[in-house]
Design a protein around this nucleic acid. Sequence first.
DNA 1: CAATTATTGTCTCATTTTGTTACAATAATG
DNA 2: CATTATTGTAACAAAATGAGACAATAATTG
Lengths: 233, 233
Amino acid sequence: MKSAAKNQDFIQNISYDSVIFGFNGSQLKILILEYHNTEYFALPGGFVKMDESLDDAVKKGVSQRTGLEDIYLEQFYTFGSLERSDPGVMDKILTENNLDMEKYGWMLGRFLSIGYYALINYEEVSLKPDELSDSINWYSIDELPPLMMNHKEMVKKALEVLRNNLDRKIVGMNLLPHKFTMKQLQQVYEAILGEKLRRTTFQRKMLSMEILVRHEKLFQGKAHKAPYLYSFK
Amino acid sequence: MKSAAKNQDFIQNISYDSVIFGFNGSQLKILILEYHNTEYFALPGGFVKMDESLDDAVKKGVSQRTGLEDIYLEQFYTFGSLERSDPGVMDKILTENNLDMEKYGWMLGRFLSIGYYALINYEEVSLKPDELSDSINWYSIDELPPLMMNHKEMVKKALEVLRNNLDRKIVGMNLLPHKFTMKQLQQVYEAILGEKLRRTTFQRKMLSMEILVRHEKLFQGKAHKAPYLYSFK
DNA sequence: CAATTATTGTCTCATTTTGTTACAATAATG
DNA sequence: CATTATTGTAACAAAATGAGACAATAATTG
């Protein structure tokens, strides 16, 4: 869940967790970490320094794990229940990583965690696990491993907010390459909403919003009409 | 902004602020505190105890100021910028209240603040200022006094989220008495959206949603047809 | 007590948006 | 050059919304 922290210039009892969405062409995926020598899977998260804004802290954490800059981030909820903090889990993670309890014991306490989701271009990432983690990998949102703490709830909430934002914010831009076909755009919407959309209605809607620029055709070497490429205005 | 805190069993560097909406029949209003011997106006806020959930902390704070229970609350955003914390302001508030810096100095630090909005029945409140405040009063959302810190931004954000929720959540229920006329309901919507709505379209829409129960007529002693009373299902 | 007044509930028709089907255009393929 | 799969758009149907019109109806007034 968290990048290792060396000292106490972090705000106590506060963390953030990020749901990093990517789209592989057909499925919506998120990034999940697995911790050394444990069976714990978790969202990428971290802490906020005393002299750093919350937004900056999250931006830094997501950048480090993905190798990307200029990341599209939205805060979606702050989780403040008592049950979500489970000292046993963090204890095991610290122990298995041979981390000094003197120095890292504060991680066992109770945390409020601010959830952010990121929308990134699946193709462009170069994934880097943090110090406590074996791996960071893409998982389809409907085939997630068991997640620690309340991270499953967090993913659910992130997805809800993303869906609600779908008609008010331009979401496709961040999940697709610069140029894309109408079909790809539709597939992003379908993956987020979890339902099929009508092709002609979707196309008419998108074109009528006047947010797209039409470019050259994309010849895919298939035995049918080539689709146009589009980008966002 | 905050209820006075006696000791250190609060989570450090975390606060909440509440935008408490009420409807007086024609205007949307919110509750604002004014501090003793200062010109500072602020949203009702507070801190979160180590062994208490965030939701409970907010619920308690809003209950104390309004005398209400079972309050409708929605978390709308967490504010984590560096600029929002202004030690000068808290310093003056503490000084004017003759509060010991040893004991209360922690309030001068940097805070992340979680914003909640409440929807309450304007008629039913019995307002109680907290220990640091002279007064707690209703202000129309477009005639607010100058607010401290980033509280104006908070109000703006709360209103944005409330507007976005208007078509997904049933908002009128919490701002109106149990039984109300269609006109009153429309006025709530108009006050929140800040625009006039078409009477016939609004009525048709509300009735078609099948969330209302129609009751007896309300005879207002006026020279015209009496409207029906409704309540939410 | 009939005419007046303001407001309410509902109907109708126009307009806009969305659902659905149809069909022509077009890049390969064989 | 006919076949195939997919794309772009037109056409029509159905549903939702906009905009008026109008009858019903509680007082009030002369």
